[in-house]
Design a protein around this nucleic acid. Structure first.
Lengths: 364, 364
DNA sequence: GTCATAAACG
DNA sequence: CGTTTATGAC
């Protein structure tokens, strides 16, 4: 049995607005820790992951894991019937095939109740590799939206380049080419170990990257992990030691709604520190508090950390779609490594929405 | 000859916006008391009645009754040429087949003049029964709009239930069912005689409703009439004694533009008080002042008075259409009796727009 | 306010 | 089936 009371229906509305054009049906996997959603987009090109932690709810109770198969168009309609500041209580019985939503207006006698049919969705859950990203960029969500929208007017794709200058978005179109460069607000691209206090190391890194990246990386790994974790502004880890770090999503057949955690458990064994850091992300109150703090404190600037130059090309159509999530957060993080899917992450209080998009091959 | 000067062209614009999608052509029946419009919607399911009392005009003169046959699309176009705060003077000559409109900007030398062709409309005037409604609900117009729009996302029809809890709107759709309950703002559904000062009678009523409604009603009729009239916040009578109360519209062949008044004269004879109250509504300055006062004073709450439980089902499409009139008033009144057309009424200074909609039979 | 899509109409 | 019209997105 699930009973989850959200203080503001608006959060759910925004989440659905963000994903409903990408995904038609998806399981809301509810368990005691919260609600997770994971789905490939309709054309099976992008992966959407939503997490709403139980602590983000005013009331939360879920006795046992329940995958709630939802048609997102239906849920969107039902949520349209809520005002943003209504409270929203989700209820689902163990054996029932419907989701009950109750909206209560803040200071009013209006109570609206909806019952939405659920469906069985054959969820091919994907294992999300816990990638070592070579570049992490935090920028204002509105800035990202603006850039991808602008460039989408010119061409189909955008090449994103991260180097010590900053991050550059380049689109070549029929009629015009466009290039947008964002420099880090503090003027410094945090290089290598993500530590801008050690300037000499920064220099060292720059040289290495252009010649012998792998050895440089290997050499710095252990240090990087700690430092990135310690000072980064975000929930997404920039580095890890797993050998599967650069692989694409691997299909899994289970349906247990704790995929991310399980992935970590399955694939990790080499680094105790990483494992701890990684799983704390999805469970520990300490981490949640940090997320909230980050959002509240986000200053509107551009922050760039990288281990090596990254250049990737993506379909703008998808990035534009992802950028709809900017209603959920002031900032967005881009995580990139060469030849690895881009991770676009919007964090909100007690949760996040993340998108993974495979790069185009070649440089079309 | 008609000459009617409206202080604000905006009023006419709003009225046309409200009905132009429901009705294509209609007679503006002008007489010395004002301008009335009465028309079935294009699919002959709903009835629209508009009244603009002469006192609502800055200048008003109409020597003899004139039905002005107007294509509403044309009039809408012509009215688009006026600014909302322009004055608008309507002129029509006795023998002429056109309507002259003059717009004068408030503090300007701009005078615009339009002539619109009139047409002969074979108006089958309908006699509107002066129904005894068993439930009267006053609610914020925006709330009503919101509810019917929301529910129209889910299904075609809405079942409206009025009972001592409040008013409930229920829609069953393919993907989801919805139910919105509005409780009266003061917490009390005024039951039976509409008098909430007599609590013990309220209790008594509640019991009666569930068992022997007719006798209870009969017993209380005389008192109800007075009290409802006295304290109700609206222009629409909730109760009356006529035997034609529960009949549907009856077609009339005349075309004289004073239908409502004539109806009253024709059908009433039993209750002097009612007649007086009813006709004063459309004529006396005292009543107009009250209407205005009501609008000004409307507090935004939900007020419910009922004699017995009412449950009716309506097509949401029409209710959504009706709710476009909310630009004309902050509040809307719903008047309902079982098996009788719903009356939806928006009052504005010196006039109103009303819609009648027959309930669906069965409960589909 | 304009545009694009979706429903309604002929 | 094409046209027209209403409604929602930008």
């Amino acid at each position: 049995m699930l009973e989850a009371k959200l203080q503001e229906a608006g959060l759910l509305k925004k989440l659905l607005d963000a994903i409903k054009e990408l995904v038609t049906d998806a399981n809301f996997d509810c368990n005691e820790e919260g609600i997770n959603l994971q789905a490939m987009d309709n054309s099976h090109v992008a992966l959407v992951v939503v997490k709403m932690e139980s602590t983000g709810f005013k009331k939360y109770r879920c006795d046992r894991p329940m995958p709630l198969g939802v048609n997102l168009a239906s849920l969107t309609k039902v949520l349209k019937c809520a005002k943003d500041d209504d409270t929203c209580t989700l209820k689902a019985g163990d054996g029932l095939d419907s989701l009950n939503l109750v909206y209560e207006a803040k200071n009013s006698d209006r109570i609206a109740e909806y019952d939405m049919k659920l469906m069985d969705i054959d969820a091919e859950q994907l294992g999300i590799p816990d990638t070592d990203y070579d570049a992490r960029i935090t920028l204002p969500a509105a800035e990202f939206t603006r850039i991808v929208k602008d460039l989408s007017l010119l061409g189909e794709s955008v090449r994103i380049e991260v180097n010590k200058e900053g991050i550059r978005f380049v689109s070549d179109g029929e009629a015009a080419n466009g290039s947008v460069l964002l420099k880090p607000t503090d003027g410094k691209v945090k290089i290598g170990d993500d530590n801008d206090d050690e300037e000499e190391e920064e220099e060292e890194k720059e040289d290495e990257e252009d010649e012998d990246e792998d050895s440089a990386k290997a050499k710095k790994k252990a240090k990087k992990q700690k430092k990135v974790k310690k000072e980064s502004n975000d929930d997404v880890e920039m580095n890890g030691d797993e050998e599967n770090g650069d692989e694409e999503f691997t299909a899994k057949s289970d349906d247990e709604g704790e995929d991310e955690k399980e992935d970590e458990e399955e694939s990790e064994g080499s680094s105790k520190k990483r494992k701890k850091a990684s799983s704390s992300k999805s469970k520990k109150p300490a981490k949640k508090a940090k997320t909230k703090k980050d959002d509240d404190e986000y200053s509107g600037g551009v922050d760039i950390a990288m281990n090596q130059h990254v250049t990737l090309t993506f379909s703008l159509k998808y990035l534009v779609n992802f950028s709809k999530s900017s209603s959920l957060s002031d900032s967005v993080q881009l995580m990139m490594s060469n030849d690895v899917p881009l991770l676009v992450s919007y964090s909100f209080e007690s949760g996040y929405i993340r998108y993974y998009l495979a790069p185009k091959i070649g440089d079309d």
